[in-house]
Design a protein around this nucleic acid. Structure first.
Lengths: 149, 149
DNA sequence: TTATTTTAAGACAAAATACTCTTAAATAGG
DNA sequence: CCTATTTAAGAGTATTTTGTCTTAAAATAA
């Protein structure tokens, strides 16, 4: 699995929020719309607020939203905030000293492959994805079509 | 983590065996040289023999070796035998129906990214890696330099 | 103030992954 | 045949990941 489940849930919630304006959206709503366990999602989003990528507000009409920083962020920032940077730094065979001086057999090709992975996640900001989503009607949940308005 | 630990251990053992000739190498030797738990490695290699990629022989002077099929195989075959094909088939966001008709926001770029991953693992056969290893002195363990003779 | 709604935090449980240990089966050599 | 060596198989343990539940804290509104 490329990304952990926590990370996938976090990304889907992030995409959900990218389509919303500045209002706080309740985690309950997100969890129901995307069919993700409420408490589990809460934990994941707490990590993102701790990293300054989201902002939360307690009480009635409270919820969560992308921070200014979060709106300008890319999916790569979200992935690193949840799964850590290891995917983009470590050797594919898990060897600690692996580098161009003392490489494993996969080293050179893995360096360029993980470039491809980070480009995929870094390519566009959330603002851009949201704009594109309105045109392309991307899915972010198993069932139903998400309203990218 | 791109590959499971089981998979990484299996790949490293595979690379170890690729440098050997037709003799059976004991799993004990591999586990000591590569610093992998003996019993755990045994389990992993059993999967590869079950898939016909390796052959084992019991008793004194017994051990394991790449089968004819295994020598002609690529690392991709080994990865799929251990971790299954999911990495190369599933949606990056874990959505079941994801495809070009009803894509997630990552779909198109993920398709080409996973192409990059499979090319990395498919690029060369074990025979070719072993040949290259003799020239480039690739590492396959934390410490020490592996003898690719 | 009080009740309600929401996130925060932490304990807990379940499942998956990683790893260990014991016993069985096969083979070789004396 | 007997013993030692090796893989096979399966039970068992530990750790990590995933998911649940309960209580606290903050905010709103009546």
């Amino acid at each position: 699995m490329l990304l952990s489940k926590s990370c996938v849930y976090g990304l889907r919630a992030t995409l959900y929020l990218s389509a919303k304006q500045d209002e706080f959206i309740s985690i309950r709503e997100i969890s129901e719309e995307l069919d993700i366990s409420f408490h589990f999602l809460t934990k994941i989003l707490q990590q993102l607020t701790a990293n300054g990528l989201m902002e939360s507000y307690k009480g009635p009409n409270g919820g969560i939203r992308l921070s200014k920083l979060g709106r300008q962020a890319t999916l790569l920032n979200m992935v690193i905030a949840i799964d850590g940077p290891e995917l983009f730094t470590e050797c594919a065979l898990g060897l600690t000293g692996c580098g161009s001086e003392t490489p494993c057999p996969l080293h050179e090709s893995w360096v360029s492959t993980r470039e491809a992975i980070s480009s995929m996640l870094e390519g566009t900001t959330l603002e851009e994805i949201a704009k594109q989503g309105r045109i392309s009607k991307f899915r972010i949940s198993e069932e139903g079509i998400f309203n990218w308005n």
